[in-house]
Computed example of a mutant assay.
Amino acid sequence: MIKAGYNRIIGLGICITLIFIFTGCGEFIGNKTVIKLAHGLDTSHPVHEAMLFMAERAKKKSNGSLEIDIYPNQQLGTEREALELLQIGSLGMTKVSTGVLENFVPSLKVFGLPFLFRDREHRFKVLESELGEKFLNDGLGKRLKGLTFYDAGSRSFYGKKPMDSPEDLEGLKLRVMESNTAMNMVQMLGGSPTPIAWGELYTALQQGIVDGAENNLPSFYLSRHYEVCKYYMVDEHTSPPDELLISTLVWNKLSEKEKEWLKEAAMESSEHEKKLWREAELEALEEIQKAGVKVTYLDKEDFREMVQPMYEEFSKDPEMKKIIDAIQAIK
């Protein structure tokens, strides 16, 4: 009896949660459409600010008939969980790193290749090209439609021990995203890759579960990881963008006009985010140095040589080689 009562309570809790999620993911109230957008970032993050900007633009374009409710800080789950909710239509939109998205859309694992882009300008040219639009649509078969990319800068390593060269990564337990490409890269550099949810990483660093991690400057600063890790090694090994997605189950219910408003608002927010990101990078660099973090700039050629086998492995797949060649051909 006790067990049966307990199970009923658990079942009721699950039902209440599902009702909360389902109502509003793409809800149509009279002449108003409300879409829920969930993500894992802090509210002070430039990408969160860009999504707020998008919501404002969509509301203005639609004269208030299209609203986007945003739930930050993993309120509705991790990045992977948010993607799974999109696939069943229980959540309308999300923002995830392409590093996580590669588990659902294999072509995006190309963004995990170290030193794929020549520089920041080249990265934007790729993302804003016809090839970039193809990447946004590659998830349609998985009920995931990309609306735009957000700049997520370049990722570098940081930790609790001095980091002055690639050799300093040897034997370190390093947190990575849930990405096979990222895990392979860390292994190639001599480290021990450890996938941990972003929201759990601060505690994992504190408790010594991992020795360090890799991420961009604003994320390192805004997560306050600099309180635990006093060494940041600027190698800028990868630049996987963030991607804003909508469930096709929700997208297909929108009118053509709503689709137009939403796509325009997303693209405008992407342009707005570029400026926010640059400002956030400069602020983060200044603030972590004030907090006593030692920032080291490395010769990237040392890293390039160590990860070259990843390109050789990727090139064994004809389709992946074609994608890499197309990216490198963009001038």
Rank of each mutant, 00 (worst) to 15 (best):
residue 2 I to Q: 13
residue 5 G to W: 15
residue 10 I to S: 03
residue 15 C to F: 03
residue 19 I to A: 08
residue 23 T to H: 08
residue 26 G to P: 03
residue 50 A to Y: 08
residue 55 A to I: 03
residue 63 N to I: 09
residue 65 S to H: 14
residue 71 Y to Q: 02
residue 74 Q to G: 04
residue 77 G to C: 09
residue 79 E to R: 00
residue 80 R to Y: 08
residue 89 G to S: 10
residue 91 L to M: 09
residue 100 V to H: 00
residue 116 L to E: 00
residue 126 V to D: 03
residue 127 L to V: 12
residue 131 L to M: 07
residue 132 G to F: 14
residue 133 E to T: 15
residue 134 K to H: 13
residue 139 G to E: 05
residue 148 T to C: 15
residue 157 F to K: 01
residue 157 F to A: 05
residue 162 P to D: 01
residue 163 M to F: 14
residue 165 S to W: 10
residue 172 L to D: 10
residue 176 V to K: 06
residue 176 V to I: 13
residue 178 E to R: 06
residue 182 A to P: 05
residue 183 M to A: 15
residue 186 V to F: 09
residue 199 G to R: 03
residue 204 A to N: 05
residue 208 G to K: 07
residue 218 P to I: 13
residue 221 Y to R: 04
residue 221 Y to P: 02
residue 222 L to Q: 15
residue 225 H to E: 15
residue 226 Y to Q: 12
residue 228 V to R: 08
residue 228 V to Q: 05
residue 231 Y to N: 12
residue 244 L to K: 00
residue 251 W to L: 08
residue 256 E to W: 10
residue 257 K to H: 03
residue 266 A to S: 06
residue 268 E to V: 03
residue 274 K to A: 09
residue 277 W to D: 03
residue 281 E to D: 14
residue 281 E to M: 14
residue 284 A to D: 05
residue 284 A to P: 04
residue 285 L to I: 03
residue 286 E to Y: 13
residue 291 A to C: 07
residue 292 G to A: 05
residue 292 G to D: 05
residue 297 Y to V: 06
residue 300 K to W: 00
residue 301 E to R: 15
residue 304 R to D: 05
residue 313 E to S: 09
residue 315 S to I: 12
residue 318 P to A: 10
residue 319 E to F: 11
